[in-house]
Amino acid sequence: MGLLLTIIGLTLSLRSNAQNVQVSMDLFYQELSPYGHWYNDPVYGDIWQPSNVGPDFYPYSSNGYWVMTEYGNTWVSDYQWGWAPFHYGRWVHLDRRGWAWVPGYEWGPAWVEWRSGGGYYGWAPMQPSVGIHVNVGLPISLWVFIPSRHIHSRSFHRYWNRGSRNIYNRTTIINNTYIVNNNNYYGGPSRGDIERTTGRRVSVRQVQRAERPGATRV
Rank of each mutant, 00 (worst) to 15 (best):
G131M: 06
A210E: 04
V136W: 03
R170V: 04
H157Y: 11
R209L: 15
R201P: 02
R170W: 04
Y178L: 11
N184P: 05
F145E: 01
S190V: 06
R158C: 09
R209T: 05
T177D: 03
V204A: 01
N181G: 08
Y168I: 07
H150F: 15
S155K: 13
P128H: 04
S141Y: 09
T198H: 07
H152D: 05
A210G: 13
N181P: 05
S153T: 00
R154G: 09
I173R: 12
V144S: 06
T172R: 08
T171R: 05
E211L: 14
V144T: 10
I194K: 05
V130H: 00
Y168A: 09
R191S: 10
Y185T: 00
S153Q: 00
I132R: 01
V202R: 09
S141T: 08
H150Y: 14
I151H: 01
Q208S: 11
E211Y: 12
R209W: 09
N169C: 13
M126A: 04
N184V: 11
R200Q: 15
N181L: 15
V130M: 09
V134Q: 12
S203D: 08
N161M: 12
S164C: 07
N169F: 10
V144A: 02
H150S: 10
N184Y: 14
S129C: 11
R170G: 00
Q208G: 08
G192M: 11
I174G: 03
N176Y: 01
Y168F: 15
G137F: 07
N161I: 05
Y178N: 06
G163Q: 00
T177M: 09
V134M: 12
I151V: 05
E195K: 09
R191C: 14
W143G: 02
L138S: 04
S155G: 09
G192V: 08
Y159S: 02
Q208E: 12
I132G: 03
R205M: 12
N161Q: 12
Q208Y: 13
E211M: 13
I173F: 10
T171K: 02
S148G: 04
V204T: 10
V134C: 00
T172A: 07
V180K: 08
R170M: 13
V202F: 11
I146L: 14
H157C: 06
S203Q: 10
W160N: 02
Y186M: 07
M126S: 05
S203N: 09
N183P: 10
R162V: 13
F145D: 01
L142M: 10
R200Y: 11
E211T: 10
Q127V: 08
R162I: 14
G187R: 01
V130P: 01
P147Y: 06
W160P: 01
P128V: 06
F145I: 04
F145N: 01
V207L: 15
R154I: 13
E211I: 08
N166M: 15
Y186L: 09
S190H: 05
I167H: 01
P128A: 07
P139R: 11
P128C: 08
V207R: 14
I151C: 02
N181H: 14
S155R: 12
S190G: 02
S153M: 00
G188N: 03
R205S: 12
V180L: 10
R149N: 06
